[in-house]
Design a protein around this nucleic acid. Structure first.
Length: 196
DNA sequence: ACAAGGATCCTCT
DNA sequence: GAGGATCCTTGTT
């Protein structure tokens, strides 16, 4: 499938988040279908941008179509995709995927696990793709390294509140900016999701 | 320079 | 269902 052009990323972060379901993350023979994401908006009290521009979140404010990779809880890398124009601070967190190709490689990186436990969680996705801090700022719309490619449109979408943001305002905690593919077991914490 | 806490995962019960 | 791992980022002093 074709590489998605930079224009794909320039839209509103919630629209891009929905559009990302079913797209493919590719790296060196490993191909993952995105099944679950969360949008983090500019002015969002749940987002890393909530304190303005900092060294860590700088890439979120930059041009779209780049990766924002950061370390969470001192252990887990998280992959985000920067959206919106340069100067706008927003990104989409990749929360879960389904393996399409390179299953043996993914299993090796994930401790030999099998089934949805392999890829249903943001730290797991980054581990499966062997991502580290060097992928921060990586351009996703050019060939080489990590790429985002088109995929078949999903038959249905689920939505719900985002996970792990108890520190945010009540309004932002309630916002249904988490999206997932309907009809697949490759999604984390399914209970809080309902049809969009 | 310091203290606090985090967009999580795994293991054990 | 609960708790520990583990270290970087951030705001504050």
């Amino acid at each position: 499938m074709r590489l998605l052009p930079v224009a794909f990323y320039r839209a509103d972060v919630v629209a891009v988040a929905r559009a990302l379901i079913g797209k493919r993350l590719c790296r060196d023979g490993v191909e993952l279908e995105i099944t679950e994401v969360e949008a983090y908006r500019d002015g969002d009290t749940a987002a890393h941008t909530r304190h303005g521009v900092t060294a860590r979140n700088a890439v979120m404010w930059g041009p779209p179509g780049r990766a924002y990779v950061y370390l969470c809880y001192g252990l887990h890398q998280m992959l985000n995709i920067v959206t919106g124009d340069d100067g706008h601070g927003a990104a989409v967190l990749i929360r879960a995927c389904r393996p399409v190709a390179g299953l043996a490689e993914v299993q090796a990186r994930r401790g030999g696990k099998r089934g949805p436990v392999l890829l249903t969680g943001p730290g797991k996705v980054a581990q499966a793709l062997a991502l580290d801090a060097s992928f921060n700022h990586h351009v996703l719309y050019e060939p080489g390294g990590l790429e985002l490619r088109d995929g078949p449109a999903p038959t249905g979408l689920l939505a719900g509140p985002r996970v792990g943001i108890d520190y945010a305002s009540a309004e932002d905690r309630a916002a249904r900016w988490r999206f997932a593919m309907a009809g697949t077991p490759w999604v984390s914490q399914r209970k809080t999701l309902t049809p969009l």
